[in-house]
Design a protein around this nucleic acid. Sequence first.
RNA 1: GCGCCUGUAGCUCAAUAGGAUAGAGCAACGGACUUCUAAUCCGUAGGCUGGGGGUUCGACUCCCUCCGGGCGCGCCA
Length: 562
Amino acid sequence: MFDKANDDNLKQIISRAVTQYLENNKIELKAIPKIILTIPKNPAHGHLSTNIALQLSGLLEGNAKNIAQFIGREAEQNNPEIFEKIKIEGPGFINFYFRKDLFYGLLLEIISEKEKYGHSKRGNGEKVLVEYVSVNPTGPLHIGHGKCAVVGDSLSRILAAAGYQVATEYYINDHGKQIDLLGESVLARYRQLCGEEVVFPENGYQGDYIVTIAQEIKEKNQDKFKGKIDSGTKRFVRDYAKQRILADIREDLIAFGVKFDNWFSEESLYVQNRVQTVIEKLNQKGFIFSSKGALWFKSTDFGDEKDRVVTKENGEDTYFASDIAYHDDKYRRGFTTLIDIWGSDHHGYINRMKAAIQALGYAKDSFQVLLVQFVTLVRAGQIIGMSTRGGQFITLKDLLKEVGTDVARYFFLMNSHDSHTEFNLDIAKSQSLENPVFYIQYAYARICSIIEKGSARNIVLNDWNKDSIDLVLLDKKEELEIIKKLGQFKKIVERSAEQRKPYLIAGYLHELASLFHKYYTEYKVIGEDKKLSLARLYLISCIKIVLENSLSLLGIQAPEKM
RNA sequence: GCGCCUGUAGCUCAAUAGGAUAGAGCAACGGACUUCUAAUCCGUAGGCUGGGGGUUCGACUCCCUCCGGGCGCGCCA
């Protein structure tokens, strides 16, 4: 929470006291329970709290309160420079109260770290690859993909801030039946444009964008491919359509603030014969068998419901086969944790992938899947259907045009990715009350406005005076409450990264904005008393930094004026 | 039928690894602008956490069971 009282320090202090307790009572324990420090919901329960005594009492049959008393007293006596007091409350919680000078120290820390404030080394530079979106390049992104995109993008930013070495990747499924079908669909439209009577492929892609691409090919090549169905023509049309759609996808994602470090082509795995190689590797380990003319991976050895085909009867490899090769490649590039973000409709795929990971000899837990639940669009109280098949869906592009990037991103990030999102367009479009994005951005804009007013009156924080501000003047309840909240930021970022929950940042932001709005209503920052004004200016400058930093983790703009 | 997710205030969602009195926003009702932006703030009301059983100092959280919603269960991707 504070520099002198960061989690690691506190855990050490507590663990020392616990050891002392055990020694005094001649108790031997194999291991001390993991020390958990929580931010109490109720401010009356201190600045930070631990339930270690309750955990110990379960193990030792001792009285939780007595244990807590001992640990509390021990910690308090040995660290007078940290604790104002330590209280034992409830059934045996140890509640820590920090000295006020630590609060003021925190503000100095924020000002000096600026955009780095909130960053930590928790991840120890572990190499993480986050793969997300990875939509087939056979059509435009719709809003469900948008949710995956923003969850992945934001999570990556958060992991990086928490000290992980993160790379992001989009896997392009540019091999196989679907992409061929795309090519055939476009070719059929092209030939229709040339006046030919053509039967549209069964299960072909119906959308208008297919016609648009066909028109483009027609404009550039006139009737060059009229009547042609040779493999060269097919390949040309297919590749053209793929590149064209990929370019659109890339453009949509950039407009949505999402950039990938790498775009990985499935086709490239085949070009390098990697799919074959990985199947052979599994075969050598005894996990491949032949049946009904196909090759199967024995995923049931690792808890999957049934074994899975990797090479079909017709000799083609399945999507699963290349996906194994792809994930193998991720490990081979040195990543030790793989995070995949999938739409919840792919959940049935997790077990076979986990099985493959283990069969290849990698740790089960090093591969993690985040399932993103569906998005329901609501307009005027009505649910808008979103079937991809029928060709009638709301694209990400349409959504951004309607509500803007900031609002869309926040709406996708404000709830757990694991719960169904109801995206209410009427609220998202409202420029007022109901819209939480504006609430947060407004707090930021207000701060900027105060700073501007300060400079008009020559009350300014600068390098000359910033170290001599009298922060002790910040003694109001609301001010200390705000500083406490600012001090929680690093912990929130760490938790958000470890638990892969970007929405925690959104919740934190709203709470911080709320504290500021309350403070703003109650107190004037720029006033008659210049020393007090400067101290308050210092405080709101810190709020500004933390708002900026957390907004940037979500990829949302911080506007200076609204 | 089997598997994964889910059920919390009228609505949309929280609840930190099993912790303390289940919290926010919106909607409803009542108040606050001569002030650094009222896109704000203050107050009131709203709950047998889908039902039932269990585990323990303590359960929205874990286990069992039933009910309701979503999604899967291809030699598609």
